[in-house]
């Protein structure tokens, strides 16, 4: 266990755990155009952090419960009059605001809110690591188990129904997985940048992939690379780690986009 005593090793393992969970799930977020949904769930998790601190339960549990509740409420409300993005806007920012206000009611606890908004991967403990990896394994297991059904439901809900798949159930599975990732990621990149780790690696993988499965694998690779490069760059440049990881992911997105444009042009020539 001596290796885990090094905080840089813990940071690296924590980041890789997040990459493993967020990247394949992020593919579904991109395919289903749910980018803003991830954002909203993440913002709501700040309320969970406040509640967790208030009731002295673990941050992970608090964030998970609120993220889950938020996701379920949005799912239940959508399709009843208001457009989904309006519901998301109302829910996300209300939850964030209530969270920030709630935190101010905790006089006895000195809360470093920045740590929850932007994450503090260098402060990841062994217990955090265990939670992150347990969450990551759970999310990946969920995705592997439901992969084909979720993919079919993503293509077309009627098509899914006609083959005996309940699209609402698959939507629920996805929602639960999303809440899990948000809860796991809060320590690593923080509530404001979780959506970036969901969406950017998946978007970067798109031009390089020909099947959904390859896109999931490539996006995981890109997310892992972003974590490694981001951590090193943060050390070298003395910059905040979470945002540096997202910057690395954004650069990889730009590179893959460039490769995509070049291969497209090649195809047209041929």
């Amino acid at each position: 266990m001596s290796l885990l005593d090094d905080f840089t090793v813990r940071a690296l393992l924590g980041g890789l755990g997040l990459a493993l969970a967020a990247a394949p799930l992020g593919c579904f977020v991109v395919w289903r155009r749910m980018a803003y949904f991830g954002d909203a769930t993440a913002h709501a998790s700040i309320l969970g952090v406040a509640l967790a601190l208030g009731f002295s339960i673990s941050i992970f549990t608090g964030a998970l419960v609120v993220a889950l509740a938020m996701a379920l409420i949005v799912t239940a409300l959508s399709g009843r009059g208001l457009a989904t993005d309006t519901i998301l806007g109302v829910m996300a920012h209300s939850a964030l605001a209530f969270g920030l206000v709630a935190v101010s009611f905790l006089p006895n606890i000195r809360v470093d809110l920045m740590a929850y908004l932007f994450g503090d991967i260098l402060a990841v403990t062994k217990i955090d690591l265990a939670i992150i990896w347990a969450g990551a394994v759970a999310v990946v297991a969920l995705l592997v188990w439901r992969w084909n059904a979720m993919l079919t439901a993503t293509l077309n809900t009627d098509l899914a129904t006609s083959t005996g798949i309940d699209p609402r159930r698959e939507q629920l599975v996805l929602t639960v997985a999303l809440a899990l990732v948000v809860a796991v990621a809060i320590k690593v990149v923080g509530a404001l940048l979780i959506a970036a780790m969901l969406v950017i690696p998946a978007a970067a993988a798109r031009p390089l992939a020909t099947t959904p499965e390859r896109m999931a694998f490539i996006s995981t690779g890109i997310a892992a690379a972003a974590v490694i490069v981001g951590l090193r760059a943060a050390f070298a440049l003395d910059t905040p780690t979470g945002p540096t990881i997202v910057c690395a992911a954004a650069l990889l997105f730009a590179i893959s986009g460039g490769i995509g444009i070049i291969t497209q042009a090649h195809k047209k020539d041929a």
Partner: peptide, 26 residues
């Protein structure tokens, strides 16, 4: 029943070959 729905728009962000499509969900 073999069913072809009215609108099946495949999001351009989803890479999918014809063969893979035919292998869904089984």
């Amino acid at each position: 029943i073999g069913y072809v729905p009215q609108k099946l728009q495949i999001d351009p962000t989803l890479p999918l070959t014809v063969n893979r499509f035919l292998n869904l969900p089984k």
